[in-house]
């Protein structure tokens, strides 16, 4: 895949219980862009993200990653290109040791054990967790788990990184490290979160969702500076946009 463009066209998803979580979403995210997906609880953010690597398949419309539409058949290639960091790192870290976990993806994609180990160590170094290689994931702190979960994705050398609430449960230091890490990525980044300050620092553009539809999209600071719009959709104008003067 030469062009890592993520595109949704009239995307809709109806859950088996009849709940229509997203209804007709259209957007286009260019290569290397960093985009925040914001909106109140139940807006459809997580459902949308699960479509980006084929964990869920659309009831209507389509998602395209590069030249591929995301379908059951293309999902192995798509999953290699789109790394997803889930909301609860405990769901993502299931192997007996940190190193095994980070090497899980590379081994599945056919790398030799030696090469997979190198990749895993490099990914752990990238997130600053190389010293935890032999630890059991279950025993790590929330911040360490998050960092290791990100390393499991980096080890697969994806072009696009998708994250669901990456800063939840992190202490301020952990959150700061996460923000610096995200800023340093050259990947296309799609981040769903309520942490609007994080969006301001990391994302150039936001997509505002509510009730399963796109309300608006545009430059992060412009959209989030509209106080009445933000309040109408269960959000807030970020503190740092209210006070332009230095503290």
């Amino acid at each position: 895949m030469s062009h890592h463009i993520v595109e949704a066209r009239d995307l809709a998803h109806v859950y088996p219980d009849g709940h229509e979580a997203i209804r007709g979403i259209t957007f286009r995210i260019a290569h290397g862009e960093s985009v925040g997906v914001i909106g109140p609880n139940g807006a459809g953010k997580s459902t949308l993200l699960l479509h980006l690597n084929g964990c869920l398949l659309p009831s209507r419309g389509e998602v395209r990653v590069g030249e591929f539409p995301v379908t059951r058949e293309t999902s192995p290639q798509v999953r290699r290109a789109v790394g997803m960091v889930f909301q609860d790192p405990d769901d993502q870290l299931f192997m007996p040791t940190v190193l095994d976990d980070v090497a899980f993806g590379p081994l599945n994609y056919g790398l030799a054990p030696g090469e997979a180990r190198q990749r895993a160590v490099a990914a752990l170094e990238r997130v600053g967790m190389a010293n935890l290689q032999e630890q059991t994931p279950y025993r790590l702190s929330a911040g360490e788990k998050r960092a290791v979960a990100i390393a499991t994705i980096l080890a697969m050398t994806p072009d696009i990184v998708v994250m669901d609430e990456p800063s939840s449960n992190l202490d301020p230091r952990g959150r700061r490290r996460l923000i610096e890490l995200l800023k340093s990525f050259e990947h296309t980044r799609i981040i769903a979160t309520h942490d609007l300050e994080l969006v301001l620092e990391v994302c150039s553009r936001v997509i505002l969702l509510d009730a399963g539809s796109v309300v608006t999209e545009g430059p992060a600071a412009d959209v989030m500076n509209d106080e009445s719009l933000m309040l109408k959709h269960g959000l807030e104008r970020p503190h740092s946009l209210r006070h332009k003067h230095p503290h």
Binding site: N53, C55, R79, M84, F86, L107, N108, P113, A120
Partner: peptide, 24 residues
């Protein structure tokens, strides 16, 4: 629910029914 999420996370990293070991 958790089993579903774990399985999704595994599939997202190319799981095909076999857990491969780093140290053979």
């Amino acid at each position: 629910d958790r089993a579903h999420r774990v399985y999704a996370a595994m599939r997202a990293r190319g799981f095909d029914g076999r857990v491969r070991a780093l140290r053979e």
